[in-house]
Simulated scan of single mutants.
Amino acid sequence: MNTRSAAAKRAMDLALTLAALPLALPMMAAIALWVRLDSPGPALFRQQRVGRGGALFRIHKFRTMHLHDGAGPQITAGGDARITRAGSWLRRTKLDELPQLIDVLRGDMSLVGPRPEVPRYMALYDDDVRRQILSVRPGITDRAAIEFRDEERLLAASTDPERTYVQQVMPVKQRYYLDYVARRSVGGRCAHPAGHAAGAGEMNRGQAAGLASAQTRGGYTARPTHNHTPALAHPARTAMNTVAISTVTHRIPPC
């Protein structure tokens, strides 16, 4: 995305967010009160995510889980015992994402764009693919988020939800993300990852090193692949979601 297009998109994000806030704030206040009354703990949850250019930021959400030591998985499958009663409804309706309007105002996010990942999963992407995805601001919603709106249900059916997410879901999301970036690049053409030019989306060495250090945490190790899809050092795949995820794959626009 060139500088002029990025500035126009940022201006639109600010205009729409400022227009929506008067309507959203009363609802956010009511939800915050409900979260506090439903279970002990703060109304908001913050978590480190990877933003534009590899910069780390803390995303804002309504808290949907009981307080815990953070030792559990960084993905959530349906039926997760950590989810509160209020959190179950908020996650189903996606209203837990409303506080991300704050992140849009701060400039960390856009209304539309690739969903921001935690460093551990972002580190699994091929370097060139990661640079393309991080060349734009992450968003509150995008095509991948819509297509995978039932992601928690899909993961709940897996015997290993994290492996299913990394090996089956992430490659599909990657294609959506690259399509989004390509359609907003000069000419709107899909470019090979290797052709990505240095610029706002490039990470500095410190940021790249920080992501690289996240690759091996939790037992998963990224390895490069010729088709630029994330992969694990262990090639075994879970088969339970193949049909459901293949259905989503067929809807991906050609690049």
Rank of each mutant, 00 (worst) to 15 (best):
N2D: 15
A6E: 15
R10L: 10
L14N: 05
L16T: 03
L23E: 01
A30D: 05
A32Q: 03
D38S: 11
S39F: 03
P42N: 04
P42W: 06
A43M: 09
A43H: 05
R52A: 15
L56M: 11
I59Y: 00
K61W: 00
R63I: 05
H66E: 01
L67T: 11
H68Q: 03
G70H: 00
P73T: 11
I75D: 10
G78K: 02
R82G: 04
A86F: 07
A86P: 03
S88A: 12
L90K: 04
R92Q: 11
I102A: 08
D103T: 05
G107L: 07
G107R: 01
D108N: 14
R115A: 01
R115P: 12
Y121N: 01
A123P: 07
Y125M: 08
I133H: 05
L134H: 05
R137G: 09
G139A: 14
E147W: 09
A156I: 09
D160V: 10
D160E: 14
P161F: 05
E162G: 07
R163H: 11
Q167V: 14
Y176Q: 04
R183T: 13
V186Q: 10
G188S: 15
R189G: 00
P193W: 05
H196Q: 02
H196Y: 10
G206R: 01
Q207Y: 07
L211G: 00
Q215E: 12
Y220N: 08
T221H: 05
H228T: 09
A231H: 08
A231K: 05
T238Y: 09
A239F: 11
A239D: 15
M240K: 10
T247R: 11
R251V: 07
I252V: 14
P253Y: 12
P253I: 14
